[in-house]
């Protein structure tokens, strides 16, 4: 019934797809539900609303973004399918990290600012629901071992509240697969990423100040002394995955393990990241669906996609095509669909776009259009239906990106 009520088309100004050169919401009034929430301003890393420290770096090209996105998606799919989990177990036993372990953070474009230490030092951190361990670059860090960043390096020696995690304790043991031996009785950590990027250093604790009124005492994070790869420019990463070492896990006592975020539509607007605020399932305005888990990949938040409609018409895709579940990931750019579902979506979308000239494919995006010369664009609506009937009717920005249908197949049939 909901699908039948969905709009058949969405019409927007062609200019709305442009990123915008000025921040339209430089200091929004953050939503605040109750006294147990901490709300952080969230922005696109490359845009006029980004912290000045992060915005001067050039954005990666579309081609680079899509290539990095494909590596991340392939990694996630391997982990969820079980192959990645086997690699993780093997890596622990061998005390080495295979190059394929981890993910590519080149597509993590959304940042928040928090302060670390006493006195607090501002850190621009990429938010990632697809990983757990948080880290920042720390002094000492030789130029050959750390990438350049706009903020001064965090110096644990100048923080009165910093403590290195000792070896042998529960906190060090909690690192699990991220553990990397001991040095001078300090607990070491390492995170290696699918493209060969990595961070390595000392596991430590310090005060993480989220807002003027919200701080996490004894926050455990990686103090990175050696980084390489596609990490340039950021101060660190905020892991929001499901494992206990993530920010969400560490603050479960204070915030109930609940969090929410809103990714801005374009770089010239802002969103937010809220820790806490657990509300009833009947919260107004929300379409709610069950949170699922994957035993082989416990980091991920998984929902069950059950159908897709285009132009108000449900696609003819067998339910079994969606049976594997859907990872909700802030670090993947383009939604990946099972091949049968993507083929049906693409066909229906193309049928609704015959008024526009097609354009050359762009990397993994194979359904592109030349929209130059149009003042408005009318797209077939796209709605994603989740278990329990929750329906996400996408806005134009969720349908078309880089001039292309912003979906891709998640692999080959039977893969």
């Amino acid at each position: 019934a909901r699908a039948a009520e969905a709009p058949r088309y969405v019409t927007v100004s062609a200019a709305s797809f442009k990123p915008g050169s000025t921040c339209r919401d430089p200091d929004p009034v953050a939503p605040r539900r109750n006294g147990t929430s901490a709300v952080l301003r969230l922005t696109h890393r490359h845009g006029p609303c980004a912290p000045a420290r992060a915005s001067s770096l050039a954005a990666p090209s579309v081609a680079d973004t899509l290539r990095a996105d494909q590596r991340r998606a392939e990694y996630i799919l391997r982990r969820v399918s079980g192959a990645g989990a086997q690699q993780l177990v093997g890596s622990k036993a061998a005390a080495t990290v295979p190059a394929s372990w981890g993910y590519d953070i080149g597509t993590l474009n959304y940042v928040v600012t928090a302060s670390l230490g006493t006195p607090g030092v501002a850190q621009t951190l990429e938010v990632d629901t697809g990983s757990d361990l948080s880290w920042v670059q720390c002094k000492p860090c030789a130029a050959s071992s750390c990438y350049s960043q706009k903020d001064p390096l965090f110096d644990p020696a100048r923080s009165s509240s910093y403590a290195a995690v000792p070896c042998g304790g529960s906190a060090c043991a909690g690192l699990g697969l991220y553990a990397s031996g001991c040095s001078a009785a300090q607990c070491g950590y390492v995170v290696s990423y699918g493209d060969g990027s990595n961070t390595r250093g000392v596991y430590g604790s310090d005060t993480l100040t989220l807002t003027a009124t919200d701080a996490v005492q004894g926050f455990l994070f990686g103090c990175g002394h050696a980084q390489s790869g596609l990490l340039t420019g950021i101060d660190g990463l905020l892991g929001l995955g499901r494992l206990p070492v993530s920010l969400v896990g560490q603050t479960a006592g204070a915030y109930g393990g609940a969090f929410s975020y809103c990714l801005p539509t374009k770089p010239s607007t802002t969103g937010y990241l809220t820790l806490g605020g657990a509300a009833s399932a009947a919260a107004p305005g929300f379409a709610t669906t069950q949170l699922l888990t994957s035993p082989g990949a416990p980091t991920y938040y998984i929902v069950m996609l059950t159908g897709i409609s285009v132009g108000g018409q449900a696609l003819s895709v067998p339910a079994s095509a969606f049976a594997g579940g859907t990872v909700v990931d802030t670090g993947t750019v383009v939604t990946r669909l099972p091949p049968a579902a993507y083929a049906a979506l693409r066909s229906a979308f193309r049928s609704g776009m015959t008024a526009y000239p097609s354009a050359a494919p762009n990397g993994i995006l194979d359904t592109c259009y030349d929209l130059s010369g149009y003042s408005t664009v009318t797209l077939p609506s796209v709605a994603l239906v989740l278990s329990s009937g929750a329906t996400l009717t996408l806005g134009a920005d969720g349908i078309l990106s880089f001039g292309c249908l912003a979906f891709a197949a998640s692999g080959s049939d039977g893969g």
Binding site: L77, C262, T265, A283, V303, V327, V328, T332, A341, G398
Partner: peptide, 28 residues
């Protein structure tokens, strides 16, 4: 397996509370 990427999450508030995932459109 599918992945819901950040292009499709934009402007939704996504709320995760341990039992469920909620999506609120037009939140930012």
């Amino acid at each position: 397996m599918a992945i819901l990427g950040n292009v499709q999450q934009r402007s939704f508030e996504v709320r995760i509370d341990g039992d469920s995932v909620g999506f609120r459109p037009g939140a930012c």
